[in-house]
């Protein structure tokens, strides 16, 4: 069965969809950030599964082993995780400010307070 080899990716896709759904559909500002997190983490898993090589090992040089998993995606994801944290921190900081200014972290309530805009 040819598509069996793709199964791994599809699980990740489902995870991404769940995360993305939270971002779009949820009105709670914290949950949105959580959703973004899940969305991004799933993308990371996806990248890492790209790097896996059958028969390869972790990319740390050991005498005698020639097959390693691809280190490049690992590096990218390291960077991307950091970026993710940075964004989360920033997002949460904004949520805190929003709560201070509006007394709520529900999107619809905030829009109500601001009128039409």
């Amino acid at each position: 069965m040819e598509w069996l080899g793709l199964y791994n990716y599809w699980v990740v896709v489902v995870l991404m969809m769940v995360g993305f759904y939270i971002v779009i559909a949820q009105g709670n500002l914290v949950k949105k950030i959580v959703g973004l997190n899940i969305f991004q983490t799933s993308v990371f898993i996806f990248f890492i599964s790209l790097a896996k090589l059958d028969g390869g090992t972790a990319p740390v040089y050991v005498e005698g082993i020639t097959e390693y998993s691809n280190p490049l995606p690992h590096v990218l994801i390291l960077t991307a995780i950091v970026v993710g944290v940075a964004l989360t921190a920033m997002g949460l900081a904004l949520v805190v400010r929003v709560h201070e200014l509006y007394g709520s972290i529900e999107e619809d309530e905030i829009h109500e307070q601001d009128g039409k805009h």
């Binding site: 971002v23 950030i33 973004l36 904004l94 200014l101 601001d114």
Partner: peptide
Amino acid sequence: RAVMSSYQYLV
């Protein structure tokens, strides 16, 4: 509203 719009932009 600046804070809220910044948040929306972030998302």
